[in-house]
Computed example of a mutant assay.
Amino acid sequence: MSASMTTDQRAARTTRAVAAAVAAGRERGLAVTEPIVLHDVFSVVVHLAPSPVVVRVPTVLAPGMDLDGLADRQRTELAVVSWLAEHGTPVIAPSPLVDVEPVHRDGFSMTFWHYVDRDSSAEPDYVRNAALVADLHLALREYPGELPFLSAAEPKTLTASFAVLAERPDLIAPAELERAQHEWELIEPLVSSRAVFDAAFPDMGVQPIHGDAPAYNIVPTTNGALYADFELTTLGPVEWDLAAFGPEAADAYDAAAAGVGLRPLDRRVLRFVEAVGMARTIACLALVDELPLLREGIEPAMQQWRSQPFPDDLLG
């Protein structure tokens, strides 16, 4: 069995990520004298102060993801967010001070973003934010670039993660893993093939979506709310972006969507994407050695999953 990274090892990983971000910034002509770590979970997010630039350095990669695959995903994110910014959508945009492309350095692939002043007085309001997602979906409908279908589901990564967990009964009981793998086998064809999805959910349609809980990734700033973190941007049903936020948030989205001419959420599709999200959550147990806090964070969702049967109506 693998051993969890120690606190010192995780701190050293953060130090390496910050050093790589600082060096990459200086190589691109940025003044960096006071790097400040803003966030450190799956990625280390560093403000290259005094330059108005933030670097996001992913440090915890799921099984099956390498730097080349990560860079491809980052290029998609940069292209989508650049387009949104150019068309007036309020986003945290790529930094205009460096080339808009992923940067490889010292074993990391990183992206550079414009620094914004957060409004520290703002309280999270995910119901209000869910309504704002309708405006984002309206803007994304016009995105002209090509996007893969439901790449945010990361089917290869999930399959690889479950294979890792098969060797780790200390992380998940074998009977629970068997159930999770069986459920994943049932729904995996629907995220891996648009044709299969369309057959299961006719007339729903797909479009460019944020891909990673946009109601959570709306940043309150001194200049208003900004959409952020488009790392998993993909083509998919709009329900993907509202999964797990609850009925009140879904109702808020529906009301806002009606106001801008978009369809309401389909509750069966919503249950489907929430089932996929649950599979992704369980798969995250494969990352506990690198990020021990995940184990405690995942447990409430696991308890809910244990108490609920798989929604059979998803498969027609």
Rank of each mutant, 00 (worst) to 15 (best):
Val57Ile: 10
Asp66Pro: 07
Ala71Ser: 14
Leu70Asp: 05
Ala71Glu: 10
Asp40Phe: 13
Glu77Thr: 08
Val41Ser: 14
Asp72Ser: 03
Thr33Arg: 06
Leu67Pro: 02
Ser43Cys: 15
Thr76Val: 12
Pro35Ser: 12
Glu77Gln: 15
Thr33Met: 03
Val53Tyr: 02
Asp72Pro: 00
Val80Glu: 01
Val45Ser: 09
Met65His: 07
Val32His: 12
Ala62Pro: 04
Pro52Asp: 11
Asp68Gly: 09
Pro63Ser: 11
Ile36Tyr: 10
Val80Ile: 08
Ala62Val: 10
Ala62Cys: 00
Thr33Cys: 02
Val57Leu: 09
Asp68Ile: 04
Ser43Trp: 11
Val54Glu: 08
Asp68Met: 00
Val80Asp: 01
Val37Ser: 15
Arg73Tyr: 01
Val57Ser: 04
Ser43Lys: 08
Ala71Val: 03
Ala31Thr: 15
Pro52Lys: 01
Asp66Ile: 02
His39Met: 06
Thr76Ile: 14
Val45Ala: 11
Arg75Phe: 03
Pro63Cys: 03
Ala49Trp: 02
Pro58Lys: 08
Glu77Pro: 04
Ile36Asn: 10
Asp72Glu: 11
Val80Leu: 14
Met65Ala: 03
Gly64Asn: 12
Pro35Val: 04
Thr76Pro: 01
Pro35Gly: 12
Val53Phe: 02
His47Asp: 11
Arg73Ile: 00
Met65Val: 15
Ser43Leu: 14
Ala31Met: 09
Pro50Thr: 01
Ala71Thr: 06
Val46Asn: 02
Val54His: 12
Ser43Asn: 15
Arg75His: 09
Pro63Ile: 00
Val41Glu: 15
Val44His: 03
Ala79Pro: 02
Val55Cys: 15
Val55Phe: 12
Ala31Glu: 15
Leu48Ile: 01
Phe42Gly: 05
Leu67Gly: 05
Leu38Pro: 11
Arg73Leu: 06
Asp66Asn: 14
Asp72His: 10
His47Trp: 14
Arg56Lys: 15
Phe42Ile: 00
Asp66Arg: 09
Pro63Glu: 05
Asp72Ile: 06
Thr76Tyr: 00
Val45Leu: 11
Thr59Glu: 01
Val41Phe: 14
Asp40Pro: 09
His47Val: 01
Thr33Lys: 03
Val46Met: 05
Arg75Met: 03
Arg75Val: 01
Leu67Asp: 04
Pro63His: 05
Val53Thr: 08
His47Leu: 10
Phe42Arg: 13
Ala79Asp: 15
His47Phe: 05
Val60Tyr: 05
Arg56Met: 11
Val45Ile: 13
Arg56Pro: 11
Val45Lys: 06
Val80Met: 13
Val41Asn: 13
Val32Ala: 06
Pro63Asn: 08
Leu78Phe: 04
Ala71Gly: 01
Ile36Gln: 15
Val41His: 15
Leu61Lys: 08
Ser51Tyr: 01
Ala79Met: 00
Asp68Pro: 00
Ser43Arg: 10
Val54Ile: 15
Gly64Cys: 07
Pro52Met: 03
Leu38Gln: 13
Leu38Trp: 13
Val37Asp: 14
Glu34His: 14
Gln74Gly: 04
Thr33Phe: 04
Pro35Asp: 07
Leu70Ser: 05
Ala62Thr: 11
Ala31His: 12
Asp68Ala: 14
Val41Cys: 12
Leu61Cys: 05
Arg73Lys: 12
Ala31Pro: 01
Leu78Gly: 08
